[in-house]
Design a binder for these strands. Structure first.
Lengths: 135, 135
DNA sequence: TAACTTTGCTTGCAAATTGCAAGTGCAAAT
DNA sequence: ATTTGCACTTGCAATTTGCAAGCAAAGTTA
């Protein structure tokens, strides 16, 4: 998703041009869960992304303003990645994906617990989570 | 998305294993728009999917029970593809993608019109569309 | 201060996937 | 009987992926 080739004017297609690959949404998932991640944090995720692919995806997401690179307060050697407002706004999509998944195959307990809260009050859940991610 | 390799237990990851490539969701989009498509219909979409890729994606989606292949009432030479209930349930994800896209870049008039209705009553819109797709 | 480790990448290369063009086989129309 | 339409398949070049190794800058340890 590095190269900026737009296949059509369709909003779904344009969105997929940005984050429609097997890895980008997992990076975004990590950032929704953790609020901020280092390069090494992404590598530790269970799917096992290759380091060169991670670098290329982070670059693409940054170019598309989905994430921002920040300097780590503790160390110059470390880098922090965070979601922009545009990236945070992918949360509803991720929630719907989780709900779809829960309906059609077994999901982890932690997911079930979160989705229970979502079911109780989805707009409230999203609002609270956005507030948390922006702080 | 042909091969059934599950990268992790994460519901997002598992979902992407099924339809998380640059083409599958466009096939699903076409089926949400048209209810039923022939092989040739998919080829006509503006993104220009290659015929071998289309064949491989249709096979994968069928294996994962997202779509079904039906015989065309008019001709034995034709095949109809339709969404299963599992496939139709991807509609909320597609809607959220459209809404995200509308927020961050210009979208076609037709999309804007549809999203206006979504904004007015999202659950109602989804319900009506599911009913239409299942009929 | 020198050696060692950690962090965030980059590079090289083989393997897999994609995309283009050209078939192929069956059905239907002429 | 021949041509056309439809749903794919095949061959092959080009791109992308994934593994392993390398590397510079920063931080830690002795």
């Amino acid at each position: 998703m590095n190269n900026a080739k737009k296949r059509s004017d369709c909003p779904v297609s344009s969105s997929l041009d940005i984050w429609g690959d097997k890895w980008s949404l997992l990076i975004i998932r990590d950032l929704l869960n953790a609020k901020a991640c280092t390069y090494g944090d992404f590598l530790k995720s269970p799917e096992g992304i290759a380091t060169n692919i991670l670098a290329s995806r982070l670059q693409g997401l940054e170019e598309n303003k989905i994430i921002i690179k920040l300097s780590h307060p503790d160390s110059k050697a470390k880098v922090l990645y965070r979601l922009t407002a545009k990236g945070i706004d992918l949360l509803p999509i991720i929630i719907e994906i989780n709900q779809w998944a829960e309906k059609y195959f077994p999901v982890p307990e932690a997911t079930q617990a979160l989705l229970k809260k979502v079911r109780k009050d989805k707009p409230g859940f999203i609002k609270a989570m956005i507030k948390e991610l922006e702080s």
